[in-house]
Simulated scan of single mutants.
Amino acid sequence: MTFLAHNAKRQSLASADRKGKGKQGKRPDVMFMEKHREKLYELMFVECSRLICTERKKNDDKVKLWREMNDGMYWVHKSCRPSKNEFGVLGMQIAGDMLHLNILIKDSDDIHRLFHLRSVKIPVRPSNDEGVTQFVETLLLLRNITIVNISLLFHSSESRLARLKRQSSTISSDIDDN
Rank of each mutant, 00 (worst) to 15 (best):
M73I: 15
L117R: 02
F3E: 11
I105E: 04
V76N: 02
E86D: 12
I52D: 12
L161I: 10
D17Q: 06
C80D: 01
F45P: 03
D60N: 11
N102Q: 10
V136P: 08
S15W: 00
R56W: 09
S173Y: 11
Y41K: 00
D61T: 02
W66V: 09
A5I: 15
A95V: 09
R160S: 13
L117P: 08
S151L: 12
N178L: 09
G20P: 02
S119P: 08
N59Q: 12
L153C: 07
K165D: 13
M1N: 10
S169A: 11
I145C: 05
L153W: 02
N70E: 11
H6A: 11
L164Y: 07
K39D: 05
K57A: 14
S108M: 12
N128A: 09
I171T: 14
C53R: 00
A5T: 14
R67M: 14
S108H: 10
G25I: 02
R113F: 08
G96S: 06
E137I: 06
R27H: 14
F32G: 02
R50W: 10
L13F: 13
M44N: 01
I175R: 03
V120R: 02
S173C: 13
W66I: 05
G96T: 03
K26F: 07
I103R: 03
A162H: 03
R10L: 13
K84M: 12
Q11C: 08
F32H: 02
D110C: 07
D17P: 05
A8P: 03
S172A: 09
R163V: 14
M44R: 01
N128T: 09
L164D: 14
I150K: 02
Y41E: 04
F32C: 00
S156Q: 07
L90C: 05
L139A: 13
F154H: 14
R37E: 12
S83W: 02
D97N: 11
H100K: 01
E68A: 01
